[in-house]
């Protein structure tokens, strides 16, 4: 199976798992390892080549939270083929960089916006942040009203998707 995994929001790594159980072959960015993941009590033990690491793992949707090497890590696992089908990461939705509350909504559906134009102002921990358009476009939806609270990653404003074939002749 092939995955694209990002660690702590870094760049994507190509990871293939081609065998099972104790004899799994895990190929990471072209480098092949023999590896296995074993449950030990309520923790895990990962063997990779000669290295044995204890770790804790929690799954949350496509996110894998790991505690290893004395700290927590978050990996996001994506099926690359699925991503290809979805047409890659969307730049059409502005989402919340942190949890907070909506202070100002500057746009309404149908508004034309230019790259860098403010869409909404959010407040978190007494800090106000303006969320801006990452590209020119037309506002499709505004997901929240002034005063509404949201979690990190919540969708704030979406733009009307660009036609897929815009760059075609």
């Amino acid at each position: 199976m092939s995955f694209e995994i990002t660690l702590e929001g870094g760049s994507a790594h190509a990871v293939d798992v081609t065998r099972l159980d104790a004899r799994a072959i895990v190929t990471i960015d072209g480098r092949e390892h023999r590896g296995s993941l074993r449950r030990v009590g309520d923790a895990y033990e990962l063997t990779l080549a000669d290295r044995v690491e204890p770790l804790w793992i929690v799954l949350d949707g496509d996110a894998v939270h790991l505690h290893a090497f004395g700290r927590a890590w978050t990996a996001t696992v994506v099926d690359p083929v699925e991503r290809a089908r979805a047409g890659g990461p969307s730049e059409d939705v502005a989402s919340a960089p942190m949890p907070g509350v909506v202070i100002i909504v500057s746009v309404a559906p149908g508004d034309a916006v230019v790259e860098g134009q403010g869409l909404v102002v959010i407040e978190s921990m007494k800090m106000q942040n303006e969320i801006v358009a990452v590209r020119d476009g037309v506002v499709d939806r505004v997901f929240l009203e002034v005063g509404e609270t949201f979690d990190r990653g919540a969708r704030l404003v979406s733009l009307v998707p660009l036609p897929a074939d815009e760059d075609e002749d």
């Binding site: 083929v81 699925e82 290809a84 089908r85 047409g87 897929a164």
Partner: peptide, 13 residues
Amino acid sequence: AVDTEAEALALAR
């Protein structure tokens, strides 16, 4: 019905 070959093959998988 799909839009791209990549999508078609992903669906095939």
